[in-house]
Write a protein that binds this DNA or RNA. Structure first.
Lengths: 171, 171
DNA sequence: TGCGGGTTTCATTTTTTTTTGAAACTTTTG
DNA sequence: CAAAAGTTTCAAAAAAAAATGAAACCCGCA
C-alpha cells in the first residue's frame, strides 16, 4: 500500500480523538527526546498511548507515515524499555502493540537500563584516577584527592538515589 | 599561535596529573552527554575540574585543541548552568574560568534551567488535550480521561520531585 | 578617536544520529 | 515443501547537531 502522503496525515482531524492523538504524539516526542530517544520512538509511544486497541506494526507505519525500518527499530527500543507489550490477537499473525502506561514502572526500568550501567563505568574511571594519582605522587597533594573524593560522593549518591527515586513516585 | 597538532595533545602524559586530566575529561564528557550536552562542554568542564588555577579561554583552546568558537560557546553554556565562574586576575584582561565543584548546586540549577521549563509546556499541552476532549465528546469516554489523568499525575510528580531531589542530595 | 587584545557571533563544514528501503530472514500455512 | 506474510537487519541517504574560523564586536587605553 502506498505510504500516506503528507496531506493525508493531516486530512481531517475533526474528531476530538484525532486531535488528542496529535497532542499525544507531540507530548511524547518531546518527553522522549529529553531522555535522549529519537523522534520515531516518541511518535510510536504517543500513538499507542491513546489507542484503545493494540496496533500492529503496519498500522503504526501507516498512521505515522514512517518507514518499516524505523517502526521496527522504534518498537524494539520500546520493548527493551518495557514501554510496550505485545498482545495476541486470535487469527492474526501480526504482533499487536499496546502501550505500558504505568509510568512508575517505565521510569524504574529506564533507570535500570540506561543509567545504572553508566554509573558503573563511572566508578571504574574514578578508580583509574585514584590509581594514577597514588602511584605517582604518593600522598602529597590534597587538592586532587579532594576532587576525586567529590566524584566518588557524586556517583555514590547517584547510584543510591536514582533507583530509590522510582519508589518515591506515587502516581 | 598555532593550534596544537594532534600529536602534541597526547605527547607526554607521564605526569600523573596529566593522566588525571585525561580521565577527568573523559568522565565529564560522558556525564554531560548523558544530560544532553555537547562534547565540547564536557571537555571544558573536565579540564577545569582538576585545574588548580583558573584558566583563560585561550589556554582552554590550546590545551583541548578546540576552536575558539567552540570554547566560547561551551563556556557560555557552562556559565548559564553556573558550572563555571570567572575570576579576576589583576593585570590580565582575559577572563579566567574556574569550575564550580559543588554538584548539589549544579544539579539544582540544571533542573531549574533545563527541566522545569519543559514541565511547564507539558502542562499546557495536557490542558489542550483536555480542551479538545471535553469540547467535543461531552463527558462520555472514560478511557481518554483516565489517560489524560495519568499524564497530569506524571507532570505533577515530576514538577514536585525533581526540584526536591536537589535537596535530598547529601554529598 | 583609533588601536589592539579579547570575546562573541554566525555562515559554512564536518560529524553524528536517525531514517529509509530493499534484501534477508523467520514463521505460518496451504 | 513452497509460497506468503510479517519482521528484522543494514548499507546508503537524509536530517540534525556540533565544530570551525573568520568577521564583527566590545571595551579600555593612549
Amino acid at each position: 500500500m502506498a505510504k500516506a502522503s503528507p496531506t493525508t496525515q493531516v486530512e481531517i482531524l475533526n474528531k476530538s480523538t484525532d486531535r488528542l492523538e496529535v497532542e499525544s504524539i507531540d507530548f511524547f516526542v518531546r518527553m522522549m527526546s529529553m531522555l535522549g530517544m529519537p523522534k520515531s520512538v516518541g511518535e510510536i509511544y504517543g500513538l499507542l498511548y491513546f489507542s484503545k486497541t493494540p496496533l500492529p506494526m503496519d498500522q503504526i507505519v501507516y498512521r505515522l507515515g514512517m518507514s518499516l525500518g524505523s517502526a521496527s527499530q522504534g518498537l524494539k527500543t520500546l520493548r527493551s524499555l518495557k514501554a510496550v507489550k505485545t498482545t495476541y490477537i486470535p487469527g492474526d499473525r501480526r504482533d499487536h502493540y499496546l502501550a505500558e502506561t504505568e509510568f512508575r514502572r517505565l521510569f524504574a526500568n529506564f533507570i535500570k537500563e540506561e543509567i545504572t550501567p553508566h554509573m558503573e563505568s563511572a566508578k571504574e574511571r574514578i578508580q583509574r584516577m585514584e590509581d594514577s594519582l597514588s602511584s605517582h605522587d604518593g600522598q602529597k597533594d590534597e587538592f586532587y584527592h579532594i576532587r576525586i573524593e567529590k566524584l566518588k560522593k557524586l556517583t555514590r549518591a547517584g547510584g543510591r538515589l536514582l533507583p530509590a527515586l522510582a519508589g518515591l513516585l506515587k502516581f
